[in-house]
Design a protein around this nucleic acid. Structure first.
Length: 610
DNA sequence: ATAGGGTTAG
């Protein structure tokens, strides 16, 4: 740091050199140049770098590529990399001085910075244009950038160029190839091929491959591959465990997640901040938010991600006030909030119906922390107004917002129009959306659901026909449940389960019990044009009811039931589950697409803000 | 100076 005395002295010395060096001997000049580079290396803020650099330019050393390297290597500061890049492309720079080391540093800096990965590719192309030959270290960086961009064609062409140059394709390169392919859309099978053909694999390619499956949402494959890793006796490290925990989070597999935690304890793996964050996220999103909180409290070092994870976790469980108080604790703790934590905070307000508080924080983020709200934050606000039933206000908010609303915001509005009876408005918004985004099945489902509520069956049938013509299909609702270390998936109408008959009998019994308790099926949630009795049957076979019936049969009385749904719970299943929790005296913890519902004694924790 | 990881509205 320049504030320390010796460096301040150096800087003063440098200033006096600037005035004298031009007329001095070359020996003095070389000494000054060396001094400048030493100073640059000791800088750790962009301002300091810039200060020194101004002096350097006056001394006339701008052609030394090491100056650039020093800027680029301070990659934690975005300004530094951009400055280095400007310098790189500047006509004043002498390309004769450029070497692979310099380019590698700049490429690495961009490759590891979020949102700037494509710049790494530009620099790589410029490197080739300058006729600077890449070396063995260049490709891992470039491939990492390709992985971040996720463009398969780009990755393949870089892979091709790697082979063309005839470099030694060592395990480091193979590891990055696995990572690159498994991060690119449609590339996982190529990644798997590289992976399978590798000999002597350590935990790195295994982590890359497992992580690849998780990113694709193929979490079952990720867990299976982890099992294979254990069979082959490869020792996982904490990074492998982060990937496995992400798979648990995605699946909602609490039992497996708990096993992973004890595995980490047993093997004495280093519990990094990131690993703890992954554990917090897993516990919160698998339904045990109190355990997540407890873990958070025991952490000696917490990052902004730790705070965000626990705030988002509380938000998902409808514990908005607690999330808000944690946010304040975070500020008191000296943590600087970022845009992501505000998304968590606003969604906490949204899920708990804290409309006024949400509006307060929405203003606060700009006024007190200088964070400009992004489309995501506007999305939270729209969602908040919609959940609270303030559809008109939500429409007004959308009309006034400076950003162009995205399709997610439109879908939020349209769905709210349906649930709060603004059917005419919902219909016209949905029609508009389909025109703008014709290949998105969710848009058709929304319009079709509105027609169902309007009893416009012929229009609804027409939508189905249009969808069929375009080759689109509705994503079927499915519910997962974990039992004795196995994960079971239920889909409405799927008869492949070996207990299917028993489950249907249980579902019928549940229906009878519920009717006795005064339950009226909400048949308008059934989006098919069929008669009332069939509709009831249809509702009873929703995947969550099948999963609950399965759990009632196979678990001892009184044990809590945890289920995970891929879509949002329909309102009929929501009220039915409330009753089931009371009739069968079971706590039912359900995770849906975006939040948790804790059903107990006939009530739900969401207080109907869903 | 060479590989792999976490949080984000519906």
């Amino acid at each position: 740091m320049l504030s320390s005395t010796p460096k301040t002295k150096l800087l003063i010395l440098l200033r006096s050199l600037t005035t004298s060096v031009t007329s001095s001997s070359s020996y003095q000049g070389a000494a000054a140049e060396h001094g400048c580079l030493t100073l640059l290396q000791s800088c750790n803020t962009f301002t300091n770098l810039l200060q020194i650099h101004t002096q350097i330019l006056k001394l006339g050393f701008q052609n030394n590529p090491l100056i650039l390297t020093n800027f680029a290597s301070k990659s934690s500061d975005l300004n530094s990399i951009d400055y280095a890049q400007c310098f790189l492309f500047s006509p004043h720079s002498n390309t004769l001085y450029y070497d692979a080391f310099l380019f590698n540093t700049v490429i690495k800096a961009y490759a590891q910075t979020r949102n700037l990965k494509s710049k790494a590719l530009w620099v790589f192309n410029f490197m080739l244009e300058c006729k600077v030959l890449p070396n063995n270290f260049t490709y891992p960086f470039v491939l990492k950038a390709c992985a971040g961009i996720g463009d398969l064609n780009l990755g393949m062409s870089v892979h091709g160029s790697l082979l063309k140059f005839g470099f030694d394709v060592n395990n480091h390169v193979l590891n990055t190839l696995v990572h690159m392919y498994s991060s690119c859309k449609g590339g996982i099978q190529f990644g798997r091929k590289v992976f399978d053909e590798m000999t002597r694999k350590d935990s790195v390619p295994w982590s890359a491959m497992i992580g690849g499956y998780v990113r694709l949402g193929r979490s079952t494959d990720a867990v299976d591959l982890f099992g294979q890793m254990q069979i082959e006796g490869i020792c996982p490290d904490e990074i492998t465990m982060v990937a496995v925990l992400c798979a648990c989070t995605d699946l909602g597999a609490l039992e497996l997640g708990r096993w992973v935690e004890s595995f980490i304890e047993k093997t004495g793996l280093n519990k990094s901040v990131e690993l703890n964050n992954a554990l917090i996220d897993m516990f919160a999103k698998c339904g045990d938010v109190d355990k997540a909180l407890k873990l958070f409290r025991t952490m000696s070092e917490r990052s902004i991600v730790s705070w965000t994870s626990v705030i988002v976790g509380l938000a998902m469980h409808g514990r908005g006030l607690q999330a808000v108080s944690l946010f304040h604790e975070m500020i008191r703790d000296g943590m600087v909030p970022d845009d992501v934590v505000f998304i968590g905070l606003l969604s906490a307000c949204s899920h708990s119906g804290l409309v006024e508080k949400g509006q307060e924080y929405f203003d606060l983020m700009r006024k007190a922390f200088g964070i400009l709200p992004k489309i995501e934050h506007y999305g939270c606000m729209v969602d908040m107004l919609c959940r609270a039933g303030l559809v008109r206000e939500a429409v007004e908010f959308v009309q006034k917002m400076p950003n162009e609303p995205n399709s997610i915001i439109w879908r939020t509005l349209i769905n709210a129009c349906r649930t709060h009876g603004e059917l005419k408005l919902g219909e016209s918004l949905a029609r508009q959306l389909i025109e703008n985004e014709p290949m998105r099945e969710a848009n058709y489902v929304l319009l079709s659901n509105i027609y169902a509520k309007m009893f416009h069956w012929e229009k609804k049938t027409k939508i189905r026909e249009v969808m069929d013509k375009k080759g689109m299909r509705k994503i079927p609702g499915s519910t997962m449940i974990e039992l004795n270390n196995k994960i079971y998936k239920f889909v409405a109408g799927d008869m492949s389960h070996n207990q299917y008959k028993e489950i249907l009998e249980k579902v019928d019994e549940m229906g009878r019990e519920m009717k006795r308790a005064g339950y009226v099926p909400s048949t308008s949630e059934v989006m098919l044009d069929i008669d009332e009795e069939d509709k009831e049957d249809n509702l009873n076979r929703h995947s969550e009811k099948l999963a609950i019936a399965f759990a009632l049969i196979n678990t001892p009385p009184g044990t809590p039931i945890r289920i995970v749904k891929n879509l949002r719970v329909c309102s009929d299943c929501h009220s039915a589950t409330k009753l089931i929790s009371k009739i069968y005296n079971r706590e039912i913890i359900a995770r849906d697409r975006n939040r948790f519902h804790h059903f107990k004694d006939g009530l739900c924790s969401c207080k109907d803000f869903w």
